[in-house]
């Protein structure tokens, strides 16, 4: 059987089991609503546009935060790849920071920026920057010395060498860094919204939960999961595969 049909079958069975359990009252409808109710909550949310506005709001923050994270991460990554002193100091600190979930910064961020969008965007930036920086560093450090030697015999050096050889040679790591930065930022965004203000998917999730609307809670969770896997599999993994092939890594 093909992967895609296996997947469809699996989800069909899962939803079937879920419907069955709800119909036979294996669990309380209040705590774990049936698929029909979840679907209805999603449908209403889309029809009255609230979920659409949430999506737009969340994506706007993600776009701002992630762009800044990618640019900042690239800059830091280049610096720590090129300077040993920077690597020994900033590089070591990045490793430590990387192991702290960025949501941990939220209390501080709320004090600094207030309970608003800026605090959430700050968390998103922190989520993506470090992993991007570390991947850029790895990419630049792992450029084949042969490429650099060959380029130098062709009169390339300094900035030209960086722009035309080192940077393009690091593209596979840049793509991986971006994919991980996206994943971390996306999680940070949801956590940040959940704990601060709206509009946004995370905020609606908490709002629904406060009002006991479990159908909407599960609906929003499904949206978050679906978006996460679509971006990861349909966009990043595809780019990663193409790049790996072109760059002769497979």
């Amino acid at each position: 059987m093909k992967t895609i049909s296996k997947r469809i079958l699996f989800f069909a069975i899962l939803i079937g089991f879920w419907s069955l359990g709800s119909a036979l009252n294996w669990w309380s409808e209040v705590l774990f609503p049936s698929p029909i109710n979840v679907f209805q909550a999603l449908f209403t949310g889309v029809k009255d546009m609230t979920l659409i506005y949430d999506l737009i709001a969340s994506f706007r923050r993600l776009a701002i935060g992630l762009s800044i994270a990618l640019i900042l991460g690239t800059a830091i990554g280049v610096i720590i790849a090129k300077s040993k002193t920077a690597d020994d100091t900033i590089g070591a600190m990045l490793l430590a920071l990387q192991s702290v979930p960025s949501i941990v910064w939220l209390p501080l961020a709320i004090m600094w920026f207030g309970l608003n969008e800026k605090a959430v965007i700050f968390i998103v930036i922190l989520g993506g920057t470090f992993v991007m920086a570390l991947n850029i560093r790895t990419g630049i450090k792992n450029v084949q010395p042969l490429f650099i030697r060959a380029a130098r015999t062709m009169g390339s050096n300094g900035l030209d060498l960086f722009r035309r050889v080192i940077f393009p040679a690091s593209v596979p790591h840049i793509v991986t860094g971006s994919r991980l930065a996206w994943a971390f930022s996306w999680r940070a965004l949801m956590a940040g919204e959940l704990l601060s203000t709206g509009p946004g998917l995370g905020y609606t999730l908490r709002y629904a939960s406060d009002f006991g609307d479990m159908s909407l809670v599960i609906g929003v969770m499904i949206i978050i999961g679906v978006i996460g896997s679509i971006v990861d599999q349909l966009i990043f993994q595809r780019i990663e595969k193409n790049v790996a092939k072109r760059w002769g890594l497979v």
């Binding site: 490429f147 060959a150 015999t153 009169g155 050096n157 035309r164 040679a169 072109r246 760059w247 002769g248």
Partner: peptide, 28 residues
């Protein structure tokens, strides 16, 4: 220093994989 008055061919081709054949030749 290295210079374009001396061309070098290594044991491995050392072509840049992100460039096409002609782009590689245009590189220098």
């Amino acid at each position: 220093h290295p210079g374009k008055d001396r061309g070098m061919v290594f044991q491995e081709p050392a072509l840049f994989p992100w460039l096409t054949v002609i782009e590689n030749v245009i590189f220098p």
